[in-house]
Design a protein around this nucleic acid. Structure first.
Lengths: 126, 126, 126, 126
DNA sequence: GTGGTCTAGACCACC
DNA sequence: GTGGTCTAGACCACT
């Protein structure tokens, strides 16, 4: 059984959810380099969605360099996890900076933000 | 002339941009309580977009309790700025917490986050 | 009537042909900046192919930054023709270099290649 | 061990890569006339690919007149290297001409092309 | 009206 | 068996 799941009722397109989902699995090392992804039809069956939707997601992942496909064999995880991870961190920091700017504009104290950070980082390791 | 502007190329719907835009103007006190908003057709002309889009945005703002409309007169800003501001701050803090969780999961140091905060808060007041 | 055409019997996917086709029209200035492209259904009718195929092509063109789409309005040509043109030239030169290497390996005289170039460049301006 | 290699990740079908690969070996004289090619199963084992793929490639090579097969014995290189070479050169020149036309249309100077040629031909003999 | 997404089902080349 | 392409037709949000 797969650990992948999507919410068809979300406003975010299923193929985007799927893309992000798999990206995270690769980032966390749950999907290891050169490991084969489930086939489009298989996964479509498990998630009860259309194979084409899976296909679109796989195509996007390949475009992003996270997976590669071999004709007649299937799709596999690339082994450049490091660069993907760096890119992901950079994107996160940008989003973070943007929201901090918003917070500043709304006159939220920076101490408040730091306190929130402390809370989250001191939570039990999941 | 209004200080309101929208970007039709953005992936975010125009009516959402407009809603957020006006919400900010109220928050910053640029639009004061009981001040009248520009008419639907007027604003549509200025922004070169469809009046229905403006209408949808005004409806959303009324639903959120930020403005009220009087039949045959127009739309006006409500005076509960304080509660709107609180709500806005709360929403910001939730988004902030969520992204901090993501950062933690990606093993970004909390010191890094605090440094980013310092940078932004020490920028010149715009 | 449109100047766009595709060959459904080619080995190259229709959506790729279409993408390349439109890219050339932009490059040659036949499609001008901010000009609207034909709608997916319209073009699908003209070319007697499925709207989804057009859609895939438009999506790729948007990803390449050659066009942009506005929700509910349509697709339009971007105005960064210069950068697209440069990128295109660079790609052409790479392909050219690669084939010259092959020619060298096959012991084709460089004089022969230059002669071919002369021939083509002295042809009547189309 | 053979000097043949293929890249299963490439978008180009493996059997095509293989065909081209062997063709080059014949052209360069590494595979000499009447020399026997590795057996289908042997080569399949070495390259870790499906025997059917090798079979398809050998069939294509035979169709092109580059090798011939003897029932129960195996496949052998034909000795009409000259004609193959000529055909290969002709194909190269056609591809070359086509790309030069594209370059002309993109207003790349012919001097630029000649310079590229000079560079490549003056490189150290590999 | 537009583009964007999704489904269902087909066909293809490749392995 | 696999992924890749294409068709037909539907639904959605946005304008």
């Amino acid at each position: 059984m797969s650990v992948i799941s999507v919410d068809p009722r979300s406003r975010k397109p299923i193929w985007e959810q799927l893309t992000e989902n798999i990206k995270l699995l690769v980032l966390r090392g749950i999907l290891k380099p050169d490991e084969q992804l489930p086939g489009v039809r298989t996964l479509a069956g498990e998630l009860a969605i259309n194979p084409n939707t899976i296909q679109k997601s796989y195509a996007e992942l390949e475009r992003q360099g996270i997976i590669y496909s071999i004709q007649g064999r299937g799709c596999f995880v690339t082994d450049n996890r490091q660069s993907i991870e760096n890119e992901h961190k950079k994107a996160l920091e940008e989003k973070f900076s943007k929201i901090v700017s918003d917070a500043k504009e709304s006159r939220i104290d920076k101490e408040r933000l730091c306190a929130l950070i402390e809370n989250i980082y001191s939570e039990s390791e999941s």
